[in-house]
């Protein structure tokens, strides 16, 4: 989903994820009306990356940030440790594992937020501006990883004004402007 600042991308993303309930019309997640679903239930199936990474940082250390949700879900410790370490490696965060997340740099926070969303291995992803603050190397890495997920059958929606990044992996491109869908390729594209 692409479009200029203030065109409603984030708003539409939040409606699709059930964070905002539509005032008109209805939004469905896997065939269920989002109004009937609890946020917790949505969160277990859908990974939502907020545009501001600070929004989704909760724990006192980078490691803990990735581990605590799995722990709350009652996963066994060795499974948690393995999943967390894999993610730390993927997003180049291993050296920061004991750091206080709130004092990380912008790009590091972004990577942590991405890792935290993905460690839950969701079936579907909604990523709001996932490349913000990432340097070229990390952007490429993220791209490569998203491609792996696509190959594994994970669905995703990427919200971005980085047209090249958003459309590079897309099978459908929706363009918004002024709160209205002005273009929709409607599943005719093939992944680049």
């Amino acid at each position: 989903m692409i479009g200029p600042n203030g065109s409603g991308k984030t708003t539409l993303g939040k409606v699709l994820a059930g964070i905002l309930k539509p005032t008109e019309g209805r939004a469905f997640l896997a065939g269920k009306d989002t109004r009937t679903l609890s946020l917790g239930a949505i969160g277990q199936a859908v990974g939502y990356l907020f545009q501001e990474p600070e929004r989704q940082i909760f724990a006192p250390s980078v490691y803990e940030e990735l581990a605590f949700v799995l722990r709350l879900q009652g996963k066994p410790p060795d499974v948690i440790d393995h999943a967390v370490n894999t993610m730390l490696g993927r997003f180049d965060l291993s050296a920061l594992r004991d750091r206080f997340p709130f004092s990380l740099s912008r790009g590091e926070k972004q990577r942590l937020a991405l890792a935290a969303v993905l460690v839950n291995s969701p079936d579907y992803l909604i990523l709001d501006e996932p490349t913000t603050g990432l340097d070229l190397k990390n952007k490429r890495r993220l791209g490569g990883y998203l491609e792996e997920l696509l190959d594994a059958g994970v669905g995703m929606m990427i919200i971005s004004h980085d047209r090249a990044f958003a459309t590079g992996y897309a099978t459908r491109v929706i363009e918004l402007s002024g709160g209205v869908v002005i273009r929709d390729s409607d599943r005719t594209l093939h992944r680049a």
Binding site: A17, I19, S38, L39, G40, A41, I42, G43, Q44, V46, Y48, F50, R55, Q56, F58, V69, L72, Q73, A116, V117, N120, P122
Partner: peptide
Amino acid sequence: TALQLRGVALE
């Protein structure tokens, strides 16, 4: 909201 969306089913 963000915390619940991480997959924490409070209820």
